[in-house]
């Protein structure tokens, strides 16, 4: 897999990041290296291995439909950079 500058620009756009030309060059190279490294896994024969999403053979871990306590609003907003009247405040985003 070869990462192009265009891929980096696309990912940056999705992540709402502004990158300089120099950074784009740098990340293109770095991301390409990372993917190459991970690509090594493809050398393994996984033909007979089922896809795994969890390392333990768990299934149907359910909870009962019962209401418990929620956090206090003050706690909820404690780490919010900006807040207003019990709401989180974010820059205006209309898509």
């Amino acid at each position: 897999m070869k990462i192009s500058k265009k891929d980096v620009e696309y990912v940056a756009k999705l992540a709402k990041l502004k990158l300089s030309e120099k950074e784009k060059e740098k990340f293109t190279k770095q991301l390409d290296q990372i993917l190459k490294y991970v690509d090594k896994l493809n050398e393994l024969d996984t033909e007979k291995v089922k896809p795994t999403s969890h390392v333990l053979p768990l299934k149907n871990v359910f909870r009962e439909d019962k209401v418990g306590k929620s956090l206090e609003v003050e706690k909820v907003l404690e780490n919010a950079p900006e807040k207003a009247r019990g709401f989180f405040k974010v820059p205006k985003i209309i898509d």
């Binding site: 207003a84 709401f87 989180f88 405040k89 974010v90 820059p91 205006k92 985003i93 209309i94």
Partner: peptide, 9 residues
């Protein structure tokens, strides 16, 4: 959505 910002619940 409000003027210049958005509120999240």
């Amino acid at each position: 959505h409000q003027k210049g910002m958005s509120l999240v619940d």
